[in-house]
Computed example of a mutant assay.
Amino acid sequence: MIKAIIIDDETAMQEVNSQLLSEYFPSIKLVGTANCIKSGIDLIQKENPDLVLLDIELTDGSGFQLLQKLPSYDFKVVFITAFDSYAIKAIKFSAIDYILKPVNEIEFKEAIQRALDLIESKEHTESQFNILMNSFKKELQNKKLVLRTQNSMHIVDISEIHFCKSDNSYTTFYFKDGEKILVSKSLKDYESLLKEYGFFRPHQSYLVNLNHIKKVDKTDHGFIIMKNKKEIPISTRQKKNLIDLLDRL
C-alpha cells in the first residue's frame, strides 16, 4: 500500500484531492493532512509517506521552504498551486509534476500516475530536487519589483527593501542605503506580493523584511529594531506570530 499525505492550507482543497485520490487511486492510502510548514513536517516525520501532495503557498511560508527544512527525504512530490509564474518556472526547470488550482481531474490523474510510476520503478529524483531548489533560490535572490511613482518607474531588488510603511492608500518603501520611494498603492497590495520573500506585517502600518531585523523587544510594548536602526512597532496580536516565525528560520 502506497502512503500519501496532503499539505494544503485550504480545507476545501484537502477534501477535493482526498476525494480524487480515493476515487481514481484505490492503491493509495491517505494517512493524513496538514495545513502549514510545521504541521506538514511533523506529519511527514510521523508517517514517512511515499507521496506528498504539497501546496506551494502555505500560511507560514512556501512548500519549497518546507522541503528545505527537511534533513532528507525520499518521497515523491506533486505540487499543487494557483498560477504563480516564478514557482511554476522553478518546477518546470526540474521536470517535477504539479497540479494547477482549480484542480482538473484529467491533469490530476496524469500527475499522480506519473508519481506512482516513479515510486514503483524506485527511480531516484534527488537531482531533480537539487535543480528545483537551485532554481527557486535563484529566483528569490534575483527577484525584482517595479515601483511606479508619479514621475518614474523604479526597478528594485526585493532583498534590499528594509521595510514598507503605510500612509492610507500610499506606501513608502525604505531601503538599506537610506533611499525612500513613495507609491500610490496600499500596503495590503504589497503584503500579499512580498509574503513569499520573507516579509511579515507586525503592525497594520508596517511590512518588514525578516532578513533585515536586528533585534525584537518582547516587552509589553515591544518593537523591532531593524539593521538600519529604525524602530518598528509590533501589535499585541502579531507579536507571538513574529516570534514563532523567527524561531523557525
Rank of each mutant, 00 (worst) to 15 (best):
T11N: 14
T11K: 15
T11C: 05
A12C: 01
A12R: 14
A12K: 14
M13D: 12
M13W: 00
M13E: 13
Q14H: 11
E15A: 14
E15K: 15
E15M: 11
V16P: 01
V16I: 15
V16D: 00
N17I: 11
N17A: 09
N17H: 14
N17Y: 08
S18D: 05
Q19R: 15
Q19Y: 13
L20D: 07
L20E: 08
L21S: 08
S22C: 11
S22R: 14
S22W: 00
S22F: 10
E23G: 00
E23H: 13
E23T: 15
E23F: 11
E23C: 10
E23M: 13
E23L: 15
Y24L: 12
Y24M: 06
Y24Q: 09
Y24G: 03
Y24K: 12
Y24F: 15
Y24W: 14
F25M: 09
F25Q: 09
F25S: 09
P26E: 11
P26L: 09
P26N: 11
P26T: 10
S27Q: 15
S27N: 12
I28L: 09
I28W: 02
I28N: 03
I28Q: 04
K29N: 14
L30N: 06
V31F: 00
V31K: 09
G32V: 05
G32T: 07
T33W: 04
T33M: 13
A34L: 07
A34W: 06
C36V: 00
C36L: 07
I37G: 01
I37P: 00
I37H: 02
I37T: 07
K38Q: 12
K38S: 11
S39E: 14
S39F: 01
G40C: 02
G40Y: 00
I41A: 05
I41H: 00
D42R: 13
D42P: 04
L43H: 06
L43W: 04
L43Q: 04
I44W: 02
I44R: 02
Q45H: 10
Q45T: 08
Q45A: 07
E47P: 03
E47S: 12
E47W: 02
N48C: 06
N48G: 00
P49W: 03
D50V: 01
D50R: 03
D50L: 04
L51Q: 07
L51Y: 11
L51W: 10
L51S: 05
V52D: 05
V52S: 03
V52T: 04
V52K: 03
V52R: 01
V52W: 01
L53S: 06
L53V: 12
L53K: 06
L54A: 04
L54C: 04
L54I: 02
L54G: 03
D55N: 13
D55I: 05
I56A: 07
I56M: 03
I56R: 06
I56K: 05
I56V: 15
I56N: 04
I56T: 07
I56S: 06
E57I: 12
E57Q: 15
E57C: 12
E57D: 13
L58G: 08
L58I: 07
L58S: 10
L58F: 08
L58R: 07
L58C: 10
T59G: 12
T59E: 15
D60R: 07
D60T: 10
D60L: 11
G61A: 10
G61I: 08
G61D: 06
G61N: 08
S62Q: 11
G63K: 00
G63V: 00
F64N: 06
F64K: 04
Q65N: 12
Q65D: 15
Q65C: 11
Q65K: 14
Q65H: 12
L66N: 03
L66T: 05
L66K: 01
L66Q: 02
